[in-house]
Design a binder for these strands. Structure first.
Lengths: 133, 133
DNA sequence: CTTGACCTTCCAGTTGCTGGAAACCTTATG
DNA sequence: CATAAGGTTTCCAGCAACTGGAAGGTCAAG
């Protein structure tokens, strides 16, 4: 199977698939013409990677997950630990975004948004930051 | 004022301040010794940038906000538009993260996390993706 | 005079791709 | 068989927003 077919089947861009080979996530064979040659197992692996990336796992986490996936003797605890760590990171990021959103929503609401120059948004940004008002 | 003082006053790393000069956000003068020389106005600007970045505005958005800030004849509508667009982006990101979190939390909960190899997390990642179950 | 704390520039690396150029291979059609 | 279109290859560069480190100049104190 050529890279184009794999791209279509996995939904991953061919560029990304080449990149994943470059960083050692997959090891497709090569045909006599130099083209990468993929098997169903490669497609399966790439789909796995696509889904893991879709859940926000980093490349290194994906590498670890893939290794565990291929290790019949793995302990599910190892998988769970990675997922939990990642989950914690996501929740952390959500908290940060949530704080930003609250502040921004408040400022946006307060801003008249007309032709006049007075602007609570700029005012807030230009004021000395207070951690605990 | 030297860069170290400015770093301390604004909370921005000196490296970041140099970077902001490099990309044209600020234009400190230079002393005869080649050291950057900052005024209170620079400190103010940098603090503005720090707070805008803290709210997640991109560098280009910060540049635009700074320009508006220094334009006495600005229309607050222009500021509000930038903020609203950014706010929408944040809410978008939060939705994505929220979906990831829900899926992950579900999988983590289902995973025994012991010495056994059976793992719903890996199982999910290896399964054919269904958009609408 | 020397030590140590600053400051300077420049180069490289981070994350995860993405775009583009130049060149080769394959397939379909005239 | 020639040619054109489309697929594939490699390599190089760039995105965002810094961050780290090396090599060297400067300054104030003892």
């Amino acid at each position: 199977m050529n890279i184009g077919d794999v791209a279509e089947r996995t939904g991953l861009p061919a560029k990304t698939i080449r990149y994943y080979e470059e960083i050692g996530l997959i090891h497709p064979l090569r045909g006599t013409n130099g083209y990468r040659s993929f098997t169903d197992a490669h497609v399966h692996k790439l789909a796995f990677l696509g889904r893991a990336r879709g859940l926000g796992f980093s490349i290194e986490e994906c590498r670890a997950l893939l290794a565990l996936y291929e290790d019949r003797g793995r302990a599910s605890a190892d998988v769970k630990r990675i997922a939990k760590t990642h989950l914690a990171g996501i929740e952390e990021k959500m908290k940060e975004l949530s704080a930003m959103r609250d502040t921004l929503a408040d400022l946006v609401e307060k801003c008249a948004g007309d032709h006049r120059p007075d602007c609570p948004i700029l005012k807030d940004l230009s004021e000395v930051g207070q951690d605990a008002p």
